[in-house]
Design a protein around this nucleic acid. Structure first.
Length: 564
RNA sequence: CGGGGUGUAGCGCAGCCCGGUUAGCGCGCUUCGUUCGGGACGAAGAGGUCGGGGGUUCGAAUCCCCCCACCCCGACCA
């Protein structure tokens, strides 16, 4: 591709609206342009990279027996009503105004629509059907460029099995395929075993990439691979060891002491000796939650343990419930349900609020002084805490969900009447799985992981072009002639080459653009070296340069591209 | 949807607080000349509903009201 005749509008400056690295680089490197919030056009370079990703996905999906479909984005609303997902998706589902259609945010319904009445014998299964297509979701807040948008490319596949064992097998196939895909895309990722979400089902895994632009917070152990959403993550922490002797409970005047830190400073004690109190309203009833020191209540864990809905009590309610304001609340004298974190199970000689403003109590023995305390894991894990599975430590960070594999079960087949007859002539619902991958997210994550201050550093597997050919001064005939020859020969050999043949661009401009676009290999043709029949090759990743005789350039390029 | 921020030439910004000729600057763009291995130099140009609407005023990019768009934080996320 000749740059002089192509649309490669690189940007020298950082666009005002872009914040995350991948977004900035995708705009600057002429891969995408925004049309509206969360709506992007792929420019030619970006689309080439997208197609390479899709091709890798396709190969790996085909390798597990997947069959590619092309389904409509425009769906009759009534199909979505069969599964009650018009309501379930709510505002996230785009509705067409002048006809009863919706824009598909995913394709369980359409795939099940094709499966029902057609896959009607156990002999017809298993099947794996997939597609790579545009999905539409009316995200309340699109962000981070292409990472969360309203229209995006997704590979989604669906498995149809006659048994739960069959589903397990289809799921395992997808797990393997996904690892192969992300490995081939040179992504550093990890796998989080997620609990079944609102989609219903028996098991799922999320493929995640560490990134500040991520929307999930996860705890991850590098050494054993333990990974969990922080909402459910556990860690190895010391519990408060029970002192041999329990002191008597005594009152301490603590004027203006509100926080655990202030209490520790005021009494010159360690935070591990304190029990922090939080009051939640659970289905209308007050619950006192006790945590050690500054440990944070994990509301997800609390919700899961209690069931129903919880919310923190309002300040006005606190006085009514406990007789004190936040900062002076404690378990002694509290009437009502008390739940404490495992870390302070049966601990003694604790400090906590006195349920009287400006007073705290010391010498609290939860075993002796407080009846009916329920103990649960309620902590939010912190970076640096011990991994629950091995001897190393956890890191807590935000991450992007790249892909999700999911054992759906019979939710959709039952709702839509997708039944089959088994060997005994008995009717059963088809057992399904669903499996998604965000194509743009692969691209964005790759760029997040492979860039430097000059731009993108493509690996050849995803690079829009293999080689970036730079003719430094197109006004010199020798250079032009040499460049044209090299270019044509590369093209003829099937080396995908982008050729900077701009007559009016300075050398510096061409170098900067080449680094920004980030093709793996640069071939530089300059006057001095050409006089000695030499060209220069630069490896983008390492920055290494070396001279190659003109006659040998094609072999050298092939050699580097196949070996690297 | 709540909180915060921004909107002035293709891009990045100044001007606004304290209203006053033809609204500036850098990059980019056009033409000419010089330069030609890390975003060159000189000269001459083109390019603007100052996000939109309404109001105050002799006069509004500037002050007031309403709306819109985009970004960030939060909520939400099948």
């Amino acid at each position: 591709m000749r740059i002089s005749k192509s649309f490669v509008p690189t940007l020298k400056e950082v666009p005002n609206d872009a914040v995350v690295t991948s977004h900035i680089l995708m705009l600057r490197a002429a891969m995408i342009r925004m049309v509206s919030a969360g709506i992007y056009s792929f420019l030619p370079l970006g689309y080439k990279a997208a197609k390479k990703i899709c091709e890798i996905i396709r190969q790996e999906m085909d390798a597990i027996g997947g069959q590619e479909f092309h389904l409509p984005a425009l769906n009759p609303k009534e199909i979505w009503e069969e599964t009650n997902r018009v309501e379930a998706f709510g505002d996230t589902l785009f509705h067409i105004k002048n006809r009863e259609y919706v824009l598909a945010p995913t394709h369980e319904e359409i795939m099940t629509f094709h499966a029902r009445n057609v896959l009607n014998s156990y002999k017809d299964m298993p099947q794996i059907w997939y597609q790579i297509q545009t999905k539409f979701r009316n995200e309340a807040r699109p962000r981070s460029g292409v990472i969360r948008s309203r229209q995006f490319l997704m590979k989604d596949s669906y498995s149809f099995d006659t048994s739960w064992e069959g589903l397990d097998h289809s799921y395992e196939l997808h797990d393997k395929a996904y690892r192969a895909i992300f490995d081939r895309c040179k992504l550093k990722y990890f796998v989080v075993g997620a609990s079944s979400g609102a989609m219903g089902g028996t098991g799922s895994e999320e493929f995640m990439v560490k990134s500040d632009a991520g929307e999930d917070t996860v705890a991850h152990c590098e050494s054993c691979g333990y990974a969990a959403n922080v909402e459910v993550a556990e860690s190895r922490v010391n519990s408060k060891i029970r002192d041999e002797k329990s002191k008597d409970v005594y009152e301490i005047h603590t004027p203006n002491v509100k926080s655990i830190d202030e209490l520790c400073e005021f009494l010159n004690i360690d935070e591990s000796e304190c029990a922090k109190s939080r009051v939640y309203i659970h289905n209308g009833e007050a619950v006192l939650v006790l945590m050690q020191g500054n440990d944070e209540v994990n509301e997800s864990k609390l919700t899961k343990a209690l069931g129903g809905n919880i919310r923190p009590a309002h300040p006005e309610e606190l006085m009514e419930i406990t007789g004190a304001d936040a900062g002076s609340i404690g378990p002694i004298g509290y009437k009502g349900r008390i739940i404490a974190d495992n870390r302070i199970k049966d601990a003694n000689n604790l400090y906590s609020g006195a349920n009287k403003n400006d007073y705290h109590l010391g010498g609290i023995d939860l075993f002796r002084d407080v009846n009916n305390v329920e103990y649960l894991d309620l902590r939010t894990v912190l970076s640096g805490e011990g991994c629950p599975r091995c001897e190393n430590n956890l890191q807590v960070f935000s991450a992007i969900e790249l892909g999700h594999i999911f054992k759906l079960g019979t939710k959709y087949s039952e709702a839509m009447g997708a039944m089959f007859l088994d060997e005994n002539g008995k009717e059963n619902p088809i057992i399904m799985g669903s499996y998604g991958i965000g194509v743009e997210r692969i691209m964005a994550c790759f760029i997040e992981q492979h860039n430097d201050e000059n731009g993108i550093i493509w690996d050849k597997v995803l690079a829009p072009f293999d080689v970036h050919l730079i003719a430094l001064n197109m006004k010199k005939q020798q250079i032009t002639e040499a460049a044209e020859e090299v270019y044509n020969k590369l093209i003829n050999q099937g080396v995908d080459t982008i050729y900077d043949d701009r007559v009016d661009a300075q050398a510096g401009v061409k170098f900067k653009d080449a680094d920004l676009l980030g093709m793996p290999l640069q071939i530089i043709i300059g006057e001095k070296k050409l006089k000695e029949d030499l060209l220069e090759v630069k490896i983008r990743k390492t920055g290494k340069r070396f001279d190659v005789p003109v006659d040998e350039i094609h072999n050298k390029v092939k050699e580097i591209l196949t070996n690297d």
